[in-house]
Design a protein around this nucleic acid. Sequence first.
DNA 1: AGCAGTCGTGCTTTGGGGTTTGCACCCCA
Length: 568
Amino acid sequence: MENTTIADLFDEMADLMEFRSENPFRIRAYRGGAQAIRDLDEPIAAIADDPNRELADLPGIGKTLAEKTMRLLESGTFPQLEELREAIPPIVIQISRIPGLGAKKAAKLYELLDIESLDDLKRACQEGLVSKLKGFGAKTETMILDGLQIAKQASERIYWATGDELATTIGDYMKTCTAIEMIEWAGSYRRGRETIGDLDLLVVASDRTAAMDFFESFSGRSGTIMRGDTKISIRVAKAFQVDMRLVDADQFGAALQYFTGSQAHNIHLRKLAKERDLKINEYGVFRNDDGSKVAGDTEQSVYQSVGLPWIAPELREDRDEFEWARNDALPELIELSDIVGDLHMHTTATDGNASIREMADAAIKRGLQYIAITDHSKRVTMASGLDAERLRQQWLAIDEIRKEYDGRLQILKGIECDILEKGGMDLPDDCLAEADWVLASVHYGQKQSREQISERILGAIENPHVDCIAHPTGRLINRRPAYDADMEAIMKSAKSHNKWLELNANPARLDLNDIHLAAARRHGIPIVINTDAHSVDGLNVMKYGIKQARRGGLTKRDVANTKSWIDW
DNA sequence: AGCAGTCGTGCTTTGGGGTTTGCACCCCA
């Protein structure tokens, strides 16, 4: 059993316990254990098998979690997990994923209205049954109808980052199969969409039966959905589907292009082929007159057959990519190695779990030239946010540390300052004026009217001490919608005030999204890609931000933290 | 449930605001 699978099961246990309002510290212990196992750089099974090592020696894993890990490795589950799975129907969990509903209200809906599916719930809301219940009103009913889509998607699609872990594990495994000659992921995973519904693996094999057998022997497989001559589908982890398609080597490019999509992109491409009296399908590119094949072994050859250069998968959404390709104006998309700084991270002063020094050392290890320490301001009570006095103390500490890192890393005095519900910043101007770098962000009053919340953000942009708006739309993928803000007005104001916008690389945020990024690029607003790290490992999420930036068509030139700090 | 140290026990983030209702629930990093 893979580390990620074990971690997922501990997280599931924590979810179920949370649902039962059990001791929050026990819940945290499960989450902590899950994170610890996820972050290991070796299989936990290897540690379990080694007589000289103890699972309980791992930080975050004690006697109990060590024992449960052993049970998982032996049987794939443990009794407490099974008990809770029995006790809590999956539909109740699904209902509680609707923003605004929690465990109690979800259970009430399930029991009182006999809700068996999200569609049942939708019907009950439309018939006005929900607002008649004690503890529910008209606003809650509207909120449920608005949030149903989010809950539905959460049960069907996983974060790109989660898909990436799974794809990497399966891909590394499949590459050890001697019958496989070519292998590539296709689908929305290859295009870097923010969520993934399933995974598509494309393979050329010298022995198809052997390749399929090998695929079916993957240790994380929980079942086989179907197996034919050219396609096999298995289930892994939480009922997630992974397809493998077998094609001939001379069809590989055409198949890869076809199965990567998007559908809209493929329709457009085929229309272009038709205009040239060609036909493109998953087997190749063919002339209509004599049926002869003109391309298909590589993707390049497919695009070339209609007179276009190869188009990066991240751009294949039928937005601007064909026009760019036709005019030889495809953006040279940004890469992880272009990033030289990270301007959003937290420390133990608020809700981070590493010190300034630990973050600095980790940043150097990742090849960065500069970082900004940006802890929360005081309004964020839950994270024990900083007031002006504590913030100035932190800056004194940074002054001390700077000497040690001179010539190796620039450490900037920053702050993630809240934009208050009534408008205005959470810290006085004289304090913000002393910072090297000020992020402004909304955490509270997210459900305010479009006018209110837009005005708050515009006010922050107009504040001369604010440099950048962090996670500008506030959305959490599969969990929470964006603020109802006027993004067009925000971009215009950012441009005219010479302010930057963040692309928050946290895989649950990825905020701004691809559409907004493309708009920011058109406006000429510099984007800053930040990790918002709350730990040393949190710095690793930069790669997800890069993927999202590429989907927005961003180049190195469009992203501010590809430049040295002194060049700004 | 993990952890530190007291080796059995206490500690482990915080508190205000909205909705619906009159206290309970949910949200916010």
